[in-house]
Design a binder for these strands. Structure first.
Length: 536
RNA sequence: GCGCCCGUAGCUCAACCGGAUAGAGCACCUGCCUUCUAAGCAGGAUGUUGUGGGUUCGAGUCCCGCCGGGCGCGCCA
């Protein structure tokens, strides 16, 4: 990064502090002020160290400013004392211009970093039972998990997307029995699956098919295809059943036993999870000899740890109770529980024109994810699910998300991209050729709209790192909305080609257009949303 | 009863590690198309951040207590 880089400024601040004999107790914090007139960067170091140094914060800050001014920092136009003791930095336009070269050089790797250093991250998400189509309740976790995977990959992790298939146990058998019953023209058994899709699938099932295997394959195909339509492709579909064959479950149970963290009681085998922070011990093998759900899940996580350095397991709100016991189980196996992250996605309430839409339609039938995608489109589906922090409950208005109007944020952002593309088309049509960036002087970019676009671009790197490492994809969505606003403003007030615009300005602006295009394209791409050339 | 998440403008939501005057969009009102898409731009109004304490230079953010909502608390998954 260019001289706007925080590390350089932090070093300068450290030097200036040393020069006035102050030793900071912690790291020097540098933040981007919320308000424009507080400059481009700001540090609270004087406030933070004043107490330890037994100094008045404002006086200390004044000394710091003086010391910084004496150092006459490259690219910094002004250093100012403000408020109770903040020190604000104002950059010269020339250092703001550098972001354009940075973005253009980076291209599609704009915002990428090497934080991960090739560390292997396994992201498990969706993991729905293979007993029917994916429904609306799966959508948020699907969009979230995939986007977290994209983000981590962008900052240098080696990412595997994984789907765990619960393909054994009572649920599957009930599903198979329900299919068989419908095939025979009968009602599903007591407690069976009663959805319309069972009737439809049974009708499509060949007479000689095994309902269990056929239904399993049908459900997987169905889930796989709707996910693919959303741009979500898993690297691995991990079968629970396969662990019976490989003996992985028994191996995991033995490993726990060897570590002395299991015991027998009441005819069952227990995991002493309370030793690792759980509020009660958990049964692994029931007194009838069957595994609880936990045993294969532990074996599965153990397997993932053998293949990856960090695990992420995206869960729905109704499974949050699972977090502590799985971490306990991993710790019991000698893994570092901090290497297992289990983000919880809170529930989504669906609305249409202000009225709540119930996720369950008829008995056994839920609103399918495919229906949502069909109604509002892939881009709007992903963008809308990624609009907010998943730790908050979400209200999702289908009518709003499907509207092509300006009240739909996804089109607002895409429109900004289409407009940039339109400028390039227009330039080509009138025969204006863009010169190589190395030959273009960016100093004509002094309009407040232009500066705002560049300032926003300069924040992207840190937003991506934050969004990826804290699993906060909505930070990218928010950035895109703000950036798009800056781009629309620039578009409106700064004509790029046309009469009365100096050729030098046109050249500089064409490169700002290019940088903006990259910013929008990369940001949208991280969310899995397309960046259209036109929106007609 | 215990645990997790949430409570911010009329509505939907932001707010990086505790920072300066809590921000956007929608809805409402007013302007702007004779050069690149008006799916846009500009301006206006909107707040006891559920509530009561505490911590400190500074709290929407951290701690404690209440109120309200969601989800869990099985030898189900």
């Amino acid at each position: 990064m260019p001289p706007m880089n925080r590390d350089l400024l932090i070093n300068a601040i450290a030097d200036a502090l040393a020069a006035i004999g102050i030793e900071p107790d912690g790291a020097i914090e540098l933040e981007r002020p919320a308000q424009r007139d507080h400059g481009d960067w700001s540090t609270n170091i004087a406030l933070a160290t004043a107490k330890g140094a037994a100094r008045n914060p404002r006086e200390l800050a004044a000394d710091l400013v003086e010391s910084l001014e004496a150092a006459s920092l490259d690219g910094v136009a002004k250093v100012e004392l403000a408020g109770p003791g903040f020190v604000n930095f104002y950059l010269e336009n020339a250092s703001i211009h550098d972001i354009v070269r940075h973005v253009v050089d980076a291209g599609d790797s704009f915002g990428s970093a090497d934080i991960g250093g090739g560390l292997r991250v396994n992201v498990e998400f969706v993991s729905a039972n293979p007993t029917g189509p994916l429904h609306a309740g799966h959508a948020r976790g699907a969009c979230f998990g995939d986007t977290v995977a994209r983000l981590l990959s962008h900052i240098g992790y080696e990412v595997t997307r994984e789907f765990y298939i619960n393909d054994r146990g009572v649920q599957m058998q009930t599903f198979a029995d329900s299919l068989a019953a419908r095939k025979a023209g009968q009602e599903p058994p007591e407690g069976g699956y009663r959805g319309q899709y069972i009737v439809d699938w049974a009708a499509a099932m060949p007479d000689d098919a095994d309902p269990f295997e056929w239904g399993y394959a049908r459900a997987l195909d169905d889930q796989r295809s709707v996910l693919a339509s959303l741009g979500i492709v898993f690297d691995r579909w991990f079968s629970e059943r396969s662990m019976i064959e490989t003996g992985a479950i028994e191996a995991a149970l033995s490993a726990l036993a060897e570590r002395g963290v299991t015991y027998e009681a009441d005819g069952a085998r227990w995991l002493a999870s309370t030793r690792f922070g759980d509020d009660k011990d958990r049964v692994l093998v029931r007194s009838n000899g069957e595994y609880t759900y936990l045993a294969p899940d532990i074996a599965y996580h153990r397997d993932k740890f053998s293949r990856a350095d960090r695990l992420i397991n995206v869960l729905g709100a109704d499974h949050h109770g699972y977090v502590v016991r799985m971490k306990a189980a991993m710790e019991a196996l000698g893994e570092d529980p901090a290497h297992l992250d289990m983000p919880i996605t809170q529930l989504v309430k669906l609305m249409r024109d202000g009225e709540e839409v119930k996720i369950s339609k008829r008995e056994g039938d839920l609103i399918e994810l495919a229906e949502i995608v069909e109604e509002i489109g892939v881009d709007a589906t992903r963008f809308t699910y990624l609009l907010q922090s998943v730790s908050s409950p979400q209200t999702f208005d289908l009518a709003l998300a499907s509207s092509r109007a300006m009240d739909n944020p996804v089109y607002y952002v895409q429109m900004a991209h289409a407009r940039m593309a339109g400028i390039v088309r227009n330039a080509t049509e009138v025969g204006t050729e863009r010169l190589p960036l190395a030959d273009v002087d960016l100093s004509p970019l002094v309009h407040e709209r232009e500066l705002e676009v560049m300032r926003q671009l300069a924040t992207f790197d840190e937003i991506v790192v934050l969004a990826a490492s804290e699993h906060l994809p909505h930070r990218v969505t928010t950035w895109l909305r703000e950036f798009a606003a800056a781009v629309h403003g620039f578009y409106h007030d700064c004509y790029v080609v046309g009469e009365g615009i100096e050729p030098e300005l046109t050249q500089a602006r064409l490169w700002l257009v290019e940088a903006s295009t990259i910013g929008l394209r990369v940001g949208l791409g991280l969310l899995g949303v397309s960046a259209p050339e036109e929106m007609r």
